[in-house]
Computed example of a mutant assay.
Amino acid sequence: MPTHPTAPESLPQYLAEGVPKQDDEDLHALQDWIDDLLEYRQDIAAEDIDASEGESIEAVEESSSGTVVIKKVSCGKDNCKCQSGELHGPYKYVVRRQGNSLNWDYKGPVSE
């Protein structure tokens, strides 16, 4: 006989107690909404990615963990080569939505 699944420890108590009380129809609706929310957070269109001053977007690709952005950047030091346009990088970032803003998670340099 299957055992009742336990909620993740990180889940707030009000959800861990409230979600199992829902009927099957509401659970399926909740699952669909969660899937849509995850897709919204991970699926960021290339036109949503803006380069700041001193940055150059090299590539934007979708992945299962979010949108992968490859960019070159300026370090901001006055005497650096990047001040004349020779930017540092490229560097890899995974970008996801967090509320109404984008969260850039640095993943390291990319070998060309």
Rank of each mutant, 00 (worst) to 15 (best):
D23I: 14
E25I: 08
Y91V: 03
S10Y: 00
L30T: 04
E53W: 12
S74C: 04
Q31K: 08
A46T: 04
E25M: 06
K72L: 05
A7G: 06
E17M: 15
E9G: 06
E62T: 13
V68R: 01
S10R: 05
E53A: 15
E61F: 01
I70S: 04
C80N: 12
D78G: 14
G54D: 00
Y106N: 02
H88R: 05
D78Q: 13
I49R: 03
G18C: 08
K72V: 08
K107L: 12
G99Q: 10
T3W: 05
I49A: 00
L30N: 06
S84M: 15
Y91I: 04
D43M: 05
K77I: 13
D26H: 15
K77G: 10
L87N: 03
E47I: 08
E17R: 13
P12N: 02
K92P: 08
A7Y: 01
C75A: 10
S111I: 08
C82S: 05
Y106V: 05
D32C: 05
R41K: 11
D36L: 07
L102K: 10
R41T: 05
S74A: 11
V60M: 02
K92T: 03
K77D: 09
G18I: 11
G99P: 03
D105L: 02
N79S: 09
Q83P: 03
E39Q: 15
N100L: 07
L38C: 15
K107V: 04
I34N: 04
Q98F: 11
G99N: 09
G18N: 03
A7R: 04
H88E: 07
N79T: 15
K72S: 11
N79A: 14
V69M: 00
W104F: 03
A46R: 06
E25L: 10
H28M: 12
A29E: 13
Y93N: 08
M1V: 12
V68A: 09
I34T: 14
E58M: 12
A45G: 06
R96A: 08
D32K: 14
A16L: 07
N103K: 14
Q22V: 11
P8Y: 08
E25H: 10
H28V: 11
V60C: 01
L27T: 12
H4I: 15
Y14D: 07
P109V: 09
C75H: 06
P12F: 09
A29G: 09
D78H: 10
L102T: 10
L15Y: 14
K72M: 09
R96M: 15
D23F: 07
V73L: 12
A51S: 03
N79Y: 13
V94H: 02
Q83K: 10
N103D: 12
D26W: 14
H28Y: 15
K92E: 05
D24A: 10
G85C: 02
C80E: 13
T67M: 00
G89D: 07
E39G: 14
S64H: 07
D23K: 15
I34W: 08
E47D: 08
I49Q: 00
T6W: 07
Q31F: 12
N103W: 03
K21M: 13
R41W: 03
P109R: 11
M1I: 09
Q98K: 11
V73D: 08
C80P: 06
I34G: 06
L11H: 02
P20M: 02
I44P: 00
E9P: 03
K107T: 04
T3F: 14
A7M: 01
